[in-house]
Amino acid sequence: MLETCTIDCPYCGEAIEILVDCSVAEQSYVEDCMVCCQPILLHVAVAPDGEPSVAAEPENG
């Protein structure tokens, strides 16, 4: 159950699309920005109705 979400890269500010696995209620993982290639730490939470929310922050703090 994958859903596309749009986030803003915390490094370059570009809007990028990521795929979120909505079958997992909470997860954190690193994905590289498709524009600037910097590592983004993503925190994903899926609500009971299946709607994902994504928080993005720089991996290197």
Rank of each mutant, 00 (worst) to 15 (best):
A47P: 04
L19T: 10
E14S: 15
C22G: 02
M1I: 09
E3L: 08
C22E: 04
A55M: 15
C9G: 09
C22N: 06
V46T: 05
I7G: 02
E14N: 13
C37Y: 14
E31L: 06
G13S: 11
A55T: 15
V24S: 07
P10W: 07
C33G: 04
V20W: 00
E31I: 08
T4W: 04
A56L: 12
C33I: 08
I18R: 03
I18T: 04
C36V: 12
Y29R: 04
V30R: 03
A15Y: 03
E3I: 12
V24Q: 05
C12G: 03
E17D: 15
S23M: 01
D8I: 01
G13I: 13
M34A: 14
P48F: 09
V24G: 04
M1K: 08
I7W: 01
I7P: 03
Y11D: 02
A45S: 11
L19M: 10
A55Y: 12
E26D: 08
E57P: 01
E26L: 06
D32C: 03
V20R: 00
Y11M: 10
T6R: 12
H43F: 10
V44C: 01
Q27L: 11
M34R: 04
P10L: 08
T4S: 13
A47E: 15
S23K: 00
V44K: 00
Q27Y: 01
H43Y: 08
E57Q: 14
L2Q: 11
L41C: 08
E57D: 11
I40F: 03
E14C: 09
Y29A: 08
S28I: 14
C9L: 10
A25T: 10
E57A: 15
L41A: 13
Q38R: 07
E26F: 02
C36F: 07
L41T: 10
V35I: 14
M34Y: 04
A45W: 02
Q27W: 02
H43I: 13
S28L: 08
P10I: 07
G50H: 11
